[in-house]
Amino acid sequence: MLFAHDTEVALRGAAALVNTAATLPTDTDDLTTVAELDEFVRAWGWTGSHRHTRAELDEVRDLRPRLREVWLADEDEAVGIVNGLLVEAGALPQLVKHDEWSWHLHATPPEAPLATRMAVEAAMALVDVIRADELDRLRVCAADDCEDVVVDLSKNRSKRYCDGTCGNRANVAAYRARNRPPT
């Protein structure tokens, strides 16, 4: 494990949230309804306040481009984004224990708005990434036709593709190219 468990979960969750946005003309936005937000919250195990409203959905959707910026930023820019997210939320880190989780950090109260909690969880995880000088583990998928973000938590820093089918498509294309008869 490269980072603490809660950090890794928060990084994956932030990437998943960013990747719900359509970035290419061929993409679809996967977070357009309150029901889709409800499913995202359930799938990623978010606890605390959840209003199930269009306004809340809009707040979460507005967070996506700010988080995407971190994947594209240099260290100084990333620090500025992360610090901005923490300051805006008035984040106050504290140790908590709930559900199946052992001690971990929360920096917002459970009644804080969902988008605020998501922003702060991502920012706190990104603090660990920046402090460990591991910002290069945040990448954009190497597939030519994909702009999804990637969190490389592999030991050998080898993850190049998102969790979609991009890696399989690239491997099949490379295999076919290697086995193509000479012309």
Rank of each mutant, 00 (worst) to 15 (best):
H5C: 05
D6I: 11
A10F: 03
A10M: 08
A10E: 06
L11H: 03
R12G: 03
G13A: 11
G13M: 15
A14G: 03
A15H: 00
A15E: 00
A16V: 01
A16L: 06
L17K: 03
A22R: 11
L24A: 10
P25T: 05
T26N: 05
D27T: 07
D27I: 12
T28H: 11
D30A: 09
L31D: 03
T32P: 12
T32W: 08
T32A: 13
L37D: 03
E39N: 07
F40I: 03
F40H: 08
R42E: 12
W44N: 04
G45K: 01
S49E: 15
R54T: 08
L57G: 00
L57T: 00
L57W: 06
E59Q: 14
D62W: 08
R66Q: 15
L67F: 06
E69A: 14
V70N: 01
V70A: 00
V70S: 00
W71C: 02
W71L: 00
L72D: 10
A73M: 04
A73R: 02
E75P: 01
D76F: 10
A78Y: 01
V82R: 11
G84P: 02
L85G: 00
L86Y: 06
E88Q: 11
E88H: 10
E88V: 10
E88G: 03
G90I: 09
G90A: 07
A91H: 12
P93S: 05
P93K: 03
Q94V: 10
Q94T: 14
L95H: 07
L95W: 14
L95Y: 04
V96C: 02
H98D: 15
H98P: 03
H98C: 08
D99L: 14
D99V: 09
E100T: 14
E100N: 10
W101S: 06
